[in-house]
Design a protein around this nucleic acid. Structure first.
Lengths: 358, 358
DNA sequence: CCTAAAATTGTTATCGATATCATCTTGCCG
DNA sequence: CGGCAAGATGATATCGATAACAATTTTAGG
């Protein structure tokens, strides 16, 4: 039975007293705080009738559960931490979305951070995240500072590394071999008759996936007996569209007879293609160009860009799923490696039919 | 003086007991927990020597502060909630980055959520966020459900609405008039001699900024005496590059003599331009096309796209800054409106010199 | 109609930090 | 040289929920 002295239109008052607690809701309904707490969870045993009365009161009073209090006593924060290099990159924002979607209706919330491709920034962020006592953490790549590894080990929570296949995985891995993927692209293009390969990527090793793609390129070009690849490093990763354009200019000045140029990402490939177009070169007739990542732009632009399609969304989704598995099974599952798919997508930008046979 | 019975190499053991608390660090150092707590804050008065000893112990033991406990007793969560329509859109991810950057080193952490352009999803997310007791909240746009507004009012925290100028602001606003911005673009192009205007946007009103741009377009075209604009609605917002391409086909089928087409965003404009190029139409010679948002792609692609440059990053940065002002001044600041800049960027895609005068 | 099992609800202690006030030094100044 | 302010540290209560167990009511079966 409701308190009659409690005004019915309470929720309508604007500047009303804040800081409503569960105990007050309980008093209002005439039950204990514990029962209110139970009513908020689907599994807990509360009679349908009581739950209904409680929820009406919650509605009327405008009570909002306080999870920070709850997570202290239950020792479950309800957070999953995730670190990506950059959110201003659609590959990683797709991954972030995959994680968010997978966490939908699980009561878990994503705490997202951007490392800016820096292991030091990552270390800082890991510490900041651990202060919130996440139940699991998702990282990009396998390159971490020693202190970061120590903190993670000590935290005793499941860790998922994504987007790569680290040599020394901390725990679980959801990703693919960037080096193999790039190798596949090289072989595919070589089989189409291309011989003189160029490569455009960033200058530093900060972007470990970029480095792996580069080494996959170099190794494969040499394996195929096509001599050393023509490598141009331009700009601090992540390399922009504009830098892709500048890079191809350098590359062609140095090696004018290059037949096909592979780029660390579709963005730089797009920049390169546009720069060529602007300079009157035809792609792929005068030069073929390919990217990596299969960004939306690559299937739309003209010419459409040959690339490696990566399951960005799936990486995020599966990383979150693996984490939840680990949480449910009491972290008993082995440290598995989940391979995610990739495939070559051949498009106009490397279409030999449009290009003169050398 | 350190406890001698505490092993020195404690941190080196891998599977060590988790759940280290401040009290244990305190015991290790020989001070009270309160002193350890103080040592973690720069302002608190602890002697330099004690702080040093504590920090050494923290390092040695591998202790990580527990903010969920701290925020309960201090009644400050350290969270700022932010909701954006989508993170897979570089305009909003720039805004998110602006917020993150502004919160750097403030001890505040961003809790990010995606509404998918849906007010219902926004309502859900607001509730989920409020359960974490954020100290402030940043929203995109001014369109919220009644219950969302009620919850926000009751929460008693500063609210910043961004990216628009809502008619009934909840509290503070950081944004610009999408309708005015689009009107400016129309007038600018009209002054260059364009007369037959088309518009491409999404089908529903879910994207309120899109709707405002559309109405700004319509109003201005009529004001200029150029008759009703030729409007094509295509696809559920956010409209993709591909949909931009499909939309322009419909538009030109219906009104083949259209001279210039304005698009709700650069992405659809890019798609439209590529589709035209693919069909053998020259942009801007045969038709001029403009976008909105000044995405990276627009300054790189060929032809470069005329657009409205919006200070996405600044919106995020300023929104966070206004929120922090409100927190510091005890929320005493009036509910101000902070206007952010925008400007027309004329580029090749509407360059009349390249187009035959009709 | 009685009893054991199941369902529902309540009581109390507790999660791990911090606010607050108390206590104890230390240093400075008249 | 006394006294008081400032600085450093400690003791205790508390933030708001939930775990764990106890108590009570309901249900089912014989």
């Amino acid at each position: 039975m409701k308190n009659e002295d409690e005004p019915k239109d309470k929720r309508l008052k604007p500047g009303e007293a804040q800081k409503l607690t569960m105990a007050e809701v309980a008093k209002y309904v005439g039950v204990s705080a514990m029962t209110v707490s139970r009513a908020f969870r689907q599994d807990a045993s509360v009679s349908e009738e009581t739950r209904k009365r409680i929820m009406e009161a919650v509605d009327a009073l405008g009570y909002v559960l306080d999870l920070s209090a709850g997570s202290l006593s239950s020792r479950r924060s309800g957070f999953i931490a995730a670190l990506v290099p950059s959110i201003n990159n659609s590959n990683f924002s797709d991954t972030a979305r995959g994680m968010t979607d997978a966490l939908q209706n699980t009561g878990l919330q994503l705490l997202l951070g951007y490392t800016d491709y820096s292991a030091e920034k990552e270390e800082e962020l890991i510490e900041a995240m651990l202060r919130r006592r996440p139940e699991g953490i998702i990282l990009t790549g396998g390159s971490h500072t020693a202190r970061a590894r120590r903190m993670l080990a000590k935290a005793g929570i499941p860790v998922v590394e994504t987007w790569e296949l680290p040599e020394n995985p901390i725990n679980q891995v959801v990703g693919f071999s960037n080096s193999e993927a790039m190798a596949l692209l090289v072989r595919t293009l070589a089989s189409q008759g291309y011989r003189k390969f160029g490569y455009i990527g960033g200058t530093t090793a900060r972007d470990t996936r970029g480095s792996q793609r580069r080494s996959g390129f170099q190794k494969t070009v040499e394996e195929l007996g096509l001599g050393p690849g023509r490598m141009i490093s331009f700009g601090v990763p992540p390399i922009t569209m504009e830098q892709g354009g500048q890079a191809i200019v350098s590359l062609l000045e140095r090696w004018p007879d290059t037949e096909v140029v592979l780029c660390v990402s579709d963005l730089s490939a797009f920049g390169a293609i546009m720069e060529c177009t602007r300079r009157g070169m035809k792609v792929p007739k005068d030069i073929a160009i390919a990217g990596f990542g299969d960004y939306e732009i690559s299937s739309i632009c003209h010419p459409r860009i040959t690339t490696i399609n990566v399951d960005c969304y799936g990486i995020g989704r599966q990383a979150a799923a693996r984490l939840m598995d680990a949480l449910h099974t009491g972290e008993a599952t082995g440290d598995e490696i989940t391979l995610t798919g990739y495939k070559v997508v051949l498009r106009e930008s490397t279409d030999r039919n449009g290009a003169p046979t050398v």
